[in-house]
Design a protein around this nucleic acid. Structure first.
Lengths: 109, 109
DNA sequence: TTTATTCATTGCAATATTACGATTAATAGT
DNA sequence: ACTATTAATCGTAATATTGCAATGAATAAA
């Protein structure tokens, strides 16, 4: 019914899915890549860089911030976003463990 | 509008998002883990293993198959699913490249 | 042929997501 | 105080997703 039955899955499974879900939109992928490219923090010219309206970008930023992948500092009227390196590393660990399942396995059919 | 503007993003960004999106549901994560755990192929006792109705599982399997992460062979009345190792590797390459962005970067804010 | 089993498909309801216009809140500059 | 700028929030429309009951198609067993 449009709602996910998270209760029947393990915490790990839900965590993997949660990380994957937030990466599951090209705008959020693009935002993260741009923040990494600039290395230093970057302000809201993400709206110019990516071709979406300001409220839409703001919404995507909110989701990324909610999961902890980015953080934002207010600087006057503008807000400077950057990658949260610690949480990124945590995500990488969780996702890599999942993606590397194949290393322990033999061939199947 | 519920619809993603894929045109304004690069192929790579869309590809990453597409892979992530399919991993963005715990049922599909669980299915993939189960298929890996059994190593050999496995039939549709996924319905018993995971606590969702058969049509729901069938739908998730369809999405996984559509992206090429699994393949299914008909065996009499049952269907045997297994991981598509080649395509899994391709996904791992794409996702790892994205997740490893941090390795080339200095600190920011 | 009939029956049972297994799985895909269809149709539907409930909810979620994506996107944007309009508005609001906050600060900076005049 | 007034204005401009920036970004969050609200409200809304369109579409997507999740989940299941009912049904259908295909094969196996009797």
């Amino acid at each position: 019914m449009g709602i996910t039955k998270t209760e029947i899955f393990t915490d790990k499974q839900n965590q993997i899915a949660q990380y994957a879900k937030v990466l599951g939109h090209p705008a959020r992928v693009a935002i993260l890549q741009y923040l990494y490219k600039l290395n230093a923090c970057v302000c809201g010219d993400l709206v110019d860089e990516i071709g979406l309206a300001q409220p839409t970008i703001s919404q995507h930023l909110k989701e990324l911030k909610h999961l902890g992948l980015i953080k934002g500092n207010v600087e006057g009227t503008s807000v400077c976003y950057c990658i949260d390196a610690d949480n990124w590393k945590k995500m990488k660990t969780v996702m890599s463990e999942f993606l590397d399942q194949d290393l322990n396995q033999k061939d199947c059919c």
